[in-house]
């Protein structure tokens, strides 16, 4: 205990340069690779033509089902479309589905969680029971349910995946709000005579949301997997559109003769999930580490 005390107090005053080297020292290769990969995807989303001169929808029957080569890095599909181009252009669909769905899920979750956490016993009880019922279903099943209600399109895919993931986040937000609400610093703020609205806005919300950022990073990968799964089942993006899940579905018929039609879109899903998860875990560790210093 004594050692830790003196350690932190001394490291606290160490120079900025020292803390930078320590930061680099603590960075693992995993998070670095993840950031590089995610940057590559961001380029693919912003301007895919930088990465490939092929068009994702350009049909070329003369070169159908060609194996990976110098001309076609990831090969071509049954209509002769360049798979690398489709993967690159598909990043935009898959990533935006992942990010928007996660954001939507978290927004719903924050509203439900805050109402539950701050509401009276009755309101909290109702919200908690509803969340528990939703929790009894796997999130993917919930998303499936919503897709059947809203119909198959990219928009409904986003809404479905977002709503499907909301219960998990909502439970966490509720717990956080309750924990923060009872924290001594909230009471300190109350004793100073701040209004409840101000305490909620300036103290409870920002502190309750902190762990949500980490969870959100982890959630993006999850959302992409779900969105791809739904597309694979034909419930999301329509077939010719370059979406990773839909590409997996289209390539399935040729898997014995042309593995590349399945492998590359699948690998992208795996990689993007790995990258966001590894980054999320890294952030979680960093935040936890900071918390435990106290």
């Amino acid at each position: 205990m004594t050692a830790i005390d003196s350690h932190t107090s001394l490291s606290g005053v160490s120079s900025r340069a020292a803390s930078t080297t320590r930061l680099l020292g603590r960075l693992r290769i995993g998070p670095i690779l993840s950031v590089v990969f995610l940057l590559f995807l961001v380029v693919a989303v912003v301007d895919p033509s930088i990465l490939t001169h092929y068009q994702p929808l350009a049909v070329d029957p003369a070169h159908s089902l060609e194996a990976p080569s110098v001309a076609h890095w990831f090969g071509t599909d049954q209509s002769g479309r360049d798979i690398f181009a489709r993967v690159v252009y598909g990043a935009s669909a898959s990533l935006s589905i992942g990010v928007i769905a996660t954001a939507l899920g978290m927004a719903v979750a924050v509203i439900l969680g805050v109402i539950g956490g701050l509401g009276g016993r009755f309101v909290d009880g109702v919200i908690s029971r509803v969340l528990e019922i939703l929790f009894a279903f796997p999130a993917l099943l919930l998303a499936l349910l919503f897709v059947t209600i809203f119909g198959a399109s990219v928009t409904s895919l986003i809404i479905s995946v977002g709503l499907g993931s909301a219960p998990g986040y909502a439970r966490m937000v509720r717990g956080q709000v309750i924990a923060v609400k009872n924290a001594p610093y909230v009471e300190a703020s109350y004793v100073l005579g701040h209004s409840r609205a101000r305490i909620l806005r300036q103290t409870i919300l920002p502190n309750a949301m902190r762990p949500l950022l980490v969870l959100g990073t982890l959630g993006i990968g999850q959302s992409i997997v779900w969105a791809s799964s739904l597309s694979f089942l034909g419930l999301g993006a329509a077939p010719p559109a370059p979406e990773w899940g839909a590409m997996l579905a289209a390539g399935r018929d040729f898997i014995s003769s042309a593995w590349w039609g399945e492998f590359f879109p699948g690998a992208m899903i795996v990689l993007v999930t790995l990258a966001t998860t590894s980054l999320g875990r890294y952030l979680a560790r960093r935040l936890e580490g900071r918390g435990s210093e106290a």
């Binding site: 924290a183 001594p184 610093y185 009471e187 300190a188 703020s189 004793v191 100073l192 005579g193 209004s195 103290t203 920002p206 502190n207 902190r210 918390g291 106290a294």
Partner: peptide, 21 residues
């Protein structure tokens, strides 16, 4: 509320009485 400023408080564990951010 307007008179709360008349009585303030110093707690045992100052750290937990501050917003960590």
């Amino acid at each position: 509320r307007p008179s709360r400023r008349l009585i303030t408080s110093v707690y045992q564990d100052p750290l937990s009485s501050f917003d960590p951010r």
